[in-house]
């Protein structure tokens, strides 16, 4: 059965506290942090972007899997912050990790679920035996307009997942998707920052799609909440996945290990995948994981995953999600503005 044969993550070193951002806009930082359940967020360094973040995560995944990168037959990078409008991120990533030229490559975009869409595409190619191994990446250096609510959560990070059939560390039992035309969040061509429908991003968007996705997967697999050990939902902030868990009746102890958003913010295309990676870092073989990603626009991808014994042979080779979370340095809003190119005079 198709599964995850390796995975790797990357989170930039820089962090800014919610209180620091709130202070600039005259908001109550502590209340904001507790309300959103986001206490600090990661931001890319001045020389980091989706290409560099994807490459670091992919190199970790290849090392974790002990895989010859020449066996990779597809590289798909999901992001909404590709550095080029035209020129695929995946071409640079594949060369930088040493892939052969005998492979297919494309960039994906579906707001925060582009990474899991790439996972599904790789699953299809591997299942149909068109390729041996596929590399699906979700990475972002998310944009938030200064002063907008998004600025408190839009973060940077990446997760790379190698999909194959040989000795998976986790088997993907099945996947389902739920897709509609819901304009809750968008960015037009040439715009620096996205726009959103404020409260409209909640009920008809995130909650409807994640809930429908979760229900569809449970119906397809004929399972209930009790059949799973861990739950991972897309994390635009800490509040939404917790509310989703409550609606679905997920006990907090099955959800809390995936909530990396409180420490690094919303890594967009990497968000749900980062939660999954954290679970894969700690889960015992035999554990069952239920994951639902969400992308504005809108859609959700749900996955049922089982951790295999093989996972224990691969741990300790590459940094874990927690290793990256702990490696941090705080910057103030001025440095944040400089690194995020919010100072236009610097070009």
């Amino acid at each position: 059965m198709v599964g995850i044969i390796g995975y790797g993550v990357y989170i930039p070193r820089y962090r800014i506290k919610t209180e620091e951002i709130a202070c600039v806009w005259g908001e109550d930082g502590e209340a904001m942090a507790h309300g959103l359940r986001v206490f600090e967020k990661s931001l890319p360094g001045p020389d980091e972007d989706v290409v560099t973040i994807s490459t670091e995560a992919a190199r970790n995944a290849v090392k974790y899997a002990e895989l010859d990168p020449k066996r990779i037959g597809a590289v798909y990078v999901g992001s909404e912050s590709h550095p080029y409008a035209v020129k695929p991120t995946g071409t640079i990533v594949s060369e930088a990790i040493g892939c052969s030229t005998d492979m297919t490559c494309a960039d994906f975009e579906f707001a925060c679920k582009a990474g899991t869409a790439a996972v599904q595409a790789c699953m299809g190619l591997v299942s149909s035996k068109m390729i041996d191994v596929g590399l699906a990446i979700g990475a972002d250096t998310a944009q938030g307009r200064p002063g907008d609510a998004l600025e408190y959560s839009a973060a940077a990070g990446g997760v790379a997942i190698l999909i194959g059939k040989e000795n998976p560390v986790a088997t993907i039992e099945t996947t389902t998707s739920f897709t509609t035309d819901t304009p809750d969040f968008w960015r037009r061509e040439g715009e620096d920052f996205p726009s959103h429908g404020a409260r409209f991003t909640g009920e008809p968007a995130y909650f409807r799609h994640v809930e429908e996705g979760a229900k569809a997967l449970m119906k397809k697999t004929d399972t209930t909440i009790d059949d799973y050990d861990y739950f991972v939902f897309h994390q635009p902030n800490g509040k939404f996945p917790m509310a989703m868990g409550k609606t679905l009746g997920v006990p907090m102890e099955k959800l809390e290990d995936s909530l990396v958003v409180k420490d690094i913010g919303n890594t967009y295309s990497a968000s749900a995948m980062m939660g999954l990676a954290r679970i894969l870092d700690i889960a015992d073989p035999g554990s069952k994981i239920f994951m639902v990603s969400y992308g504005s626009g809108a859609g959700s991808d749900a996955f049922s995953i089982v951790v295999e014994d093989e996972i224990e042979a691969h741990r300790g080779e590459v940094p874990t999600v927690d290793d990256y979370i702990k490696r941090k340095t705080y910057v103030n809003y001025s440095i944040y503005a400089k690194y995020r190119r919010k100072i236009k005079a610097l070009g």
Partner: peptide, 26 residues
């Protein structure tokens, strides 16, 4: 792996090697 330089706002982006301190791996 990092961004080395950009050939202006509309130009190509050059990527390549830089070095960082070795990391603690759990």
């Amino acid at each position: 792996f990092r961004k080395i330089t950009e050939y202006g706002e509309g130009g190509i982006i050059v990527y390549g090697y830089k070095f960082e301190p070795t990391m603690i791996v759990t």
